[in-house]
Simulated assay, not measured.
Amino acid sequence: MGDVWVRGVILMTGFSRYPKVEVIIFVLCLLMYLTTLLGNTILISITILDSHLHTPMYFFLSNLSFLDIWYTSSALIPMLANFILRKNTISFSGCASQMYFSLAMGSTECVLLSMMAYDRYVAICNPLRYPIIMNGRVCVQIASSSWLTGCLTALVETGPVLQLSLCGNSIINHFTCEILALLKMACVDTSVVQLIMLVISILLLPLPMLLICVSYAFILSNILRISSVDGRSKAFSTCAAHLTVVVLFYGTALSMYLKPSAVNSQEIDKFLALIYAGLTPMLNPIIYSLRNKEVKMAVKKLLIRNPFNALLTSVLK
């Protein structure tokens, strides 16, 4: 590990260049984090407590929610804490941990979203064989493989970065220890690290997207052959929710990690990272689950047990 990583602290400028809107950004980030925490915790809870939701789709959704909580927490909690404490520093070990967890959770989500597309393909194109193909053991293997892939690729990316020597006063123009921002602080040639990142980015972004596109091409072809209007509507509804999440997640990720080198604005990177870390995890449960009738019924059943939540129950009707 490079000497610079075992001593001192890193100063993060965050959004201090925008003092007039810094408080607004803090409030928005706090609201995004609390909403993310609430929405994803509700989804995980009802998936566990309601037996009707013990299906592969909701198993994968609960994994996605757990990922989003961890990812948003690793990115936003240090920033919110620094704002409250009126400091913009983080230890080098803390920075390394934050970078690893962000990369691991983001990489795992890339793989998991593609596996969820495969799940929808089997459910719609092979409904009779669905319980056999997507049995409990297979679902656990898919989820475990997604987590393992994400954690290992994050380790491969983080390891070489920790060997780099950082220049100057270790000031990072970002609100989080984002790997691209850290590479800009290096005093040595980073071409090898950038090559590793490019290869991993291609493996975790375009290739899973290709799998998603192929899955949905078959799904769309199958849906168009469904004679029932209600059947087509239900299938389109499920697919549209997943595709919205995919476009939001992959669109932001591609713009960050596969951006042309000529586009080098650190300020643009910060706002893209804020959308990637805060907005996407917040919208996932709303888009994919909390608008789903099965989920809404499960939430109402849980709330109706508590008379103090009658108002919330009426809202969900």
Rank of each mutant, 00 (worst) to 15 (best):
S221C: 10
A217G: 14
A181V: 05
V138G: 00
L148F: 12
C187S: 15
W147A: 12
T190Y: 01
L198I: 06
T176Y: 07
V140N: 07
V229Y: 12
I219K: 11
V156R: 01
L155S: 13
V161P: 00
T149M: 10
V156L: 11
T153E: 00
S165Q: 15
V156E: 00
S227A: 11
L220K: 15
V193I: 10
L220S: 15
I142S: 03
L183P: 00
I172Y: 00
T190K: 08
I142H: 04
P160R: 07
W147E: 07
R225E: 13
A143N: 05
M209L: 14
F175I: 01
V193T: 11
S146C: 10
P160L: 05
D230V: 06
N169V: 07
S145T: 08
L152S: 07
I196V: 07
M197P: 02
S227M: 09
S228D: 15
I200W: 00
L162I: 03
I226G: 02
T158R: 03
L164C: 08
I223C: 06
C167I: 12
C213L: 14
A186P: 03
F218H: 14
E178A: 01
K184R: 12
L210R: 04
G168Y: 03
I179C: 02
G168L: 04
S191F: 09
P208H: 01
V188L: 09
V229K: 15
V161A: 11
S144I: 05
V199F: 09
C177L: 00
I142G: 00
S165N: 13
I142K: 02
C167E: 13
I171H: 04
V188K: 14
L164V: 04
H174L: 02
T149Y: 07
V156D: 00
T176H: 03
M209H: 07
V229H: 09
S170D: 03
V156S: 06
S227E: 15
C213V: 15
V199M: 06
N169Y: 13
G159F: 12
G150C: 03
E178K: 01
V161H: 02
I223N: 08
A186E: 03
L152Q: 03
C187M: 08
M209E: 06
L166P: 00
P208M: 01
G159T: 11
S145N: 05
L183H: 01
C177T: 02
S145I: 05
F218G: 06
S145W: 11
P160H: 03
R225T: 14
G150H: 05
S165K: 14
A181S: 10
S228P: 05
S227N: 15
V138R: 13
V138Y: 05
T176W: 04
I196P: 00
G150N: 01
S144A: 13
T158C: 09
D189Y: 11
A181D: 04
S191M: 12
H174W: 04
C177W: 07
S228C: 12
S201Q: 07
L183W: 05
C151Q: 08
G168A: 10
G150M: 02
N222W: 08
S201V: 01
A186S: 15
V192G: 07
L205F: 06
E157G: 02
T158Y: 06
L162T: 06
V229F: 10
L148S: 13
L152I: 14
N222R: 15
L204S: 04
T158L: 11
L148N: 03
W147M: 12
L152K: 05
P160T: 06
A154Y: 02
I142W: 09
C177R: 00
I196E: 07
D230E: 14
